[in-house]
């Protein structure tokens, strides 16, 4: 008769020291995905809401907002947020493909990591061209 006895699994090491583990390209995409997500949560959303609120308040407020955002420092902030959003979006789309088992082999996963960086930076350049 089979016994129901089960030994508990041996405790396995969990090693997540980000400054010491080796980071191949896909893991860099992964950590940047997290960092950009945090940036968007803490800075992106409040800036977005503030901007939309000001832009809708009155035509004077709309013009004042445009003047404020025309400052070079503000343009840099907007560009940074645009990059964070675009990287997060591209890395997220890559994630959806991985979810349905497309590109999960090592070589395609590396290639799609490169694509995420290249495409998000290219789109950021378009935003930069629009800003300046």
């Amino acid at each position: 008769m089979a016994t129901a006895e089960r030994r508990p699994p041996a405790p396995r090491p969990v090693y997540l020291d980000l400054f010491r583990i080796r980071k191949p390209l896909p893991s860099i995409v992964s950590i940047v995905h997290r960092v950009t997500g945090a940036i968007l949560l803490l800075i992106g959303i409040p800036v977005l809401l503030w901007g939309v609120e000001r832009s809708l308040a009155s035509s004077d407020a709309y013009a004042a907002l445009r003047a404020t955002l025309a400052h070079p420092l503000w343009k840099l902030v907007l560009l940074g947020l645009a990059w964070a959003f675009l990287h997060h979006l591209c890395a997220g789309i890559r994630h959806l493909f991985l979810d349905v088992h497309i590109g999960i082999e090592l070589a395609p996963a590396r290639r799609s990591s490169v694509i995420v960086f290249v495409v998000s930076l290219a789109l950021t350049l378009i935003v930069a061209a629009k800003l300046w």
């Binding site: 997290r34 997500g37 945090a38 968007l40 949560l41 959303i45």
Partner: peptide
């Protein structure tokens, strides 16, 4: 954002 933050 909540799901992502909680994961982090």
């Amino acid at each position: 954002a909540w799901l992502g933050a909680r994961e982090i």
